[in-house]
Amino acid sequence: MHETMVAQSLMTIILEEAEKQRAKPVSAKISCGTLNPVNDEVLRFAFEAVAKDTSCEGVELHIEHKPIRARCNNCGREFDVELSDPACPACETGTFELLPDAPLIIEEISFQTDEP
């Protein structure tokens, strides 16, 4: 349920930007990594609840999940890690180093404009 706090922080950022732009926000694109994931459904539900009666009401969230990558210690290949069965697709066995996970980020916000 940490999505509630994510929703609140997300709304604070969108409201700040909306004030700067003097425009109504329509949608926001966010992305997260594999080790700090959000549940899309829960986040959308929480966001809808906190955004009610603010200018964020109705803002659509586009959520992208980025895979975590790793480098194989044996062949040096970089690959997307499947957490349920983490292994280098070339060597299949052996150890690997996890590369830094993508952070939970708000990438862009779209605003309504007067022009069509």
Partner: peptide, 15 residues
């Protein structure tokens, strides 16, 4: 429609 890039960590306040 106008798009702006933000590139901000959502939990940056906590960080």
């Amino acid at each position: 429609m106008k798009k702006i890039g933000v590139g901000k960590k959502i939990l940056s306040e906590n960080e």
